[in-house]
Nucleic acid binder design. Sequence first.
DNA 1: AGAATAGTGTCTGTAAGACACTATGCC
DNA 2: GGCATAGTGTCTTACAGACACTATTCT
Lengths: 268, 268
Amino acid sequence: MNSTKEITEAKFLKRYDPSRYERPSTSIDCVIYTILEGELNILLVKRAEHPFKEQWSLVGGYIDLKLDSDLESAAKRKLAEKTGVKAPYLEQLMTIGSRDRDPRGWSVTVVYFALISADSLTLQPGRGALDTKWVKLSDKKATGGLSFDHSELLKLSTKRLQNKVLYTSLPLYLMPKEFTLSNLQRVYEVVLGQSIDPKSFRRRILGAEIIEETGRQNKETKRHAKLYRRIKNSHPHYFVRNIEGCRSRPLNLKANQQFLHGLKTVHE
Amino acid sequence: MNSTKEITEAKFLKRYDPSRYERPSTSIDCVIYTILEGELNILLVKRAEHPFKEQWSLVGGYIDLKLDSDLESAAKRKLAEKTGVKAPYLEQLMTIGSRDRDPRGWSVTVVYFALISADSLTLQPGRGALDTKWVKLSDKKATGGLSFDHSELLKLSTKRLQNKVLYTSLPLYLMPKEFTLSNLQRVYEVVLGQSIDPKSFRRRILGAEIIEETGRQNKETKRHAKLYRRIKNSHPHYFVRNIEGCRSRPLNLKANQQFLHGLKTVHE
DNA sequence: AGAATAGTGTCTGTAAGACACTATGCC
DNA sequence: GGCATAGTGTCTTACAGACACTATTCT
């Protein structure tokens, strides 16, 4: 096929020089969602180094060829470094790569999205970052001017999340250990930005066998509500139809605000 | 933050040395599907070089930092080099990366899947490959022992395709320019490996406004059937419900074989 | 009592599955 | 006529939306 002398694969590998061809840089970015104060929030870090020094960006960074054995463990490492959380819901979203998304040259980033419950959080200052903060998705000023193409990644990620929530039980991963059906419904509504008929919602969730009663009640509201938990080790559930959405009912923002207190006080 | 003197971003970039940190290699792989002889086929190439020299693998290779401006154009380039086709359906599937998937070291591959119609094909011998062939997915011997982790990627890709076909119009991209509803139904059935009730199928497809009559007929079958074409520039259609599948009817493999002739003879 | 929240009864609407049926064209 | 294939009529089923209703607990 070509003019070099025939060699064995073992010899080829021994002589292989990885620096001979130019490679793009390859990094991981995580869009980490949680519910705070009844709204969907994401985690940002302030960059300690150039480029985009001191600007806010998604949680991420280079793969460490020594530390990370595969992409997912690299993502988990980034996540753990910033949130101190072990095993939330983590899904690979997409991979973006181009010549100009990073001023340092051709760059590829594998984007993950993570869902974690606010009650399991411990923020850590972490390496390579000056600071870490949660921002509401509705805060356009905070989510707008991120470094690299992160504002765009965030938008795509959120659209994907919203779409997936129409036919899955993903919001369960945003919930604390115990929650009421109304709590869960509000999280669905917050993520989707639309209200859902409570009867339909209950039918859907209770029919799927993805949560179970704890036997306890949330006594924070007027009428006490049953507390549920996610069934252990359950995979996300895929419903056969989409939520089509209430044609009438407006979103009740006040109820979502209240949810803050619900979340904070349910488990002491 | 650290001990180096404060510098501007411009200075930082000027001094930036991309070879300072070790990077994983980053490549593209494409799972290219088409319908041949009434079955789902994928394109394989025989590797010309080490590693896995002379073994079969998916279409793929390294990103060319000079030629490719982004990931998708890299995928399109690979595709065009092997099939001679311009603009089929191309979707990013997932990205796999680990320390040991390539004997040369830490390696990342971005996997795309492509759907093309058999009538638009022109196979090209192409660079870096000794040979190119279509193999049936049912041919376990051919799809089983691919180089790297390609057999596994193929399985994942096919599962994803099958799942997506349950709620989309993707099989349209496997069809020739003109086709009958029965042809289309057979392609759905071949991809899914299950039969579909013809009445439901027609309701579904005709209700979605994704195809239009050409005014012509396929005269190859006993009773002539209307020929349709995909509506121009149409995006894939997302149905609100999944195909749940016929509980009774078995898959008619004979009809699928016949489809070969249908496809070959419809347009001369 | 009255407000607020949890939770239900039951009707309608939509799209899929079942399956027997009719229609057309070749031999 | 007989077969094969295209295409339909119409009943059932599953599950979402609409919306008025009841239930519980606090003040």
